[in-house]
Design a binder for these strands. Sequence first.
DNA 1: ATATAAATCGAAATAATAGTACGAAAAACA
DNA 2: TGTTTTTCGTACTATTATTTCGATTTATAT
Lengths: 208, 208
Amino acid sequence: MGERKKFALEQFNRDNIIQAAKELFETKGIEKTTMDDIAKLADYSKSTIYVYFKSKEDIYNSIVKDYLEILIGELEICISQSKDFEESYYGLCDCLVRFEEKYPQYYASLMGEENMTNSRKKGHIPESSSGYELEHMIRRLLEKGMSHEDIRTDLELKPTILYMWSAISGIIQVAERQREDLDTRLNMNKEEYLRFSFKTFYESLVRR
Amino acid sequence: MGERKKFALEQFNRDNIIQAAKELFETKGIEKTTMDDIAKLADYSKSTIYVYFKSKEDIYNSIVKDYLEILIGELEICISQSKDFEESYYGLCDCLVRFEEKYPQYYASLMGEENMTNSRKKGHIPESSSGYELEHMIRRLLEKGMSHEDIRTDLELKPTILYMWSAISGIIQVAERQREDLDTRLNMNKEEYLRFSFKTFYESLVRR
DNA sequence: ATATAAATCGAAATAATAGTACGAAAAACA
DNA sequence: TGTTTTTCGTACTATTATTTCGATTTATAT
């Protein structure tokens, strides 16, 4: 009987909790947000929170998963609309940069740069490997829309795609980290530096 | 009077504590290592630990700083011994890869990928910006040993150095993260993938 | 050797917070 | 109306970083 309804209700409650947590994580930061905070804002008792999520990390991972889907959605649209490799490439770069700027916290998690509690704890492998999923997704997207005609003939497609992804994510990461210094050192803002790097990299990949 | 001696003693104590912490962090992991553990292993009372370090994070940061110096030392040697840009480049790559494999935990911190407690806490900027120092160092090293003759004439030197650094660090990061999958997907091991990527990138930079 | 100062210790107290326990109250349901 | 499910509230446990502070040991100087 109440199977579907029950499920819907459960989702409803989980969503409320996640919504509250999201807000708090963004304003107070993850570490400073307590389970009591979340309970209060979501207007549930703490016990109830623990009915729907088994831990704070569980909540965090759910949020990350949400953002993963958002990002993947954006990437899919952006790539599917592209006419050729060049458009896909720049679209992808742009998409990632915008996402990183909008949700730096979650971007880092999605990239596998970090977990909630930097759990490099010996032997503790994060259950939600959403971090890795993203890279698989990207590779799938690129493999689909890309052919041997698009890149230099001396490069093998599959390793090149991963290589390309490495470079792009490295560029974005460093650009963000060095944002302050770009101006001083290079007389460039982040925008310009990114354009320069993406372009230089693109041209190095394409057959000339 | 006892100025020099006092300083030496203080260093001695700090070193003992750091030594103990290092051991514990590596065996038990950072989070699972308590201040009591450190005190016991270092054979000091907990109160004394707090005389020399103001927090657990302070200890961690000191350790990271040590590794930063080690890495920088290795890089300096490796680059100063190189005859030309090609050697510097591959030496740098090799150095970083070896370091990353030896001390993955500290490598990540040095790279600014993570702090002890992933302190993306709002407004909390890590005091010890050792993360950023590394990048400056690398840039200095490369700028010194590199000239306009080494890279394509259409590229400006300074932005290119940062761009190069982005790509290298991205490649290493992704290679480590995807280590498991490289075999399945690319029929390559990490070693081979890295060689491929570094080489491809190098050739894209160099004037042909 | 002895008084003074500095370093260290011990042991208890504080504080913060994740997660648990469990009976009572409320809501949904049959 | 009786039964089941959900939610609540409150108190409790457990862990740990960090602080406090008087007592004790060690070094230094007179």
